[in-house]
Amino acid sequence: MDTPEINRRQRQKLGYTYTFLSDPKVEVIRRYDLLHHGAGPKGTDIARPAEFFIDSNGIIRWVNLTENIAVRARPEQVLEAFELTEQPASR
């Protein structure tokens, strides 16, 4: 699990501007049921890849839980999810 310091350096190096959060005790990963037990370096617990899109009311509007670690959400999928959050929730 990357520390805030590693995140800061990587974020700078790659030129990202969004927030990087660090979950060293895998608490949030566990709460979201995304723990991939022993899959990290030296058998550490890490997160399985997952993407959520949350609207301005904190409601989840889109979830992507991949079945293959190599397959991740594509930018256009995330943009579609964003358009979804612009519309009022249907429930």
Binding site: P4, N7, R8, R11, T19, F20, L21, S22, D23, E27, V28, R31, Y32, D33, L34, A50, F52, I54, G58, I59, I60, R61, W62, V63, L65, A89, R91
Partner: peptide
């Protein structure tokens, strides 16, 4: 894992 339509569980973590 949280589903569509649910409120995203709240958390607090350290940023970069």
């Amino acid at each position: 894992a949280p589903r569509v339509g649910q409120k995203a569980p709240e958390f607090t973590l350290s940023n970069q």
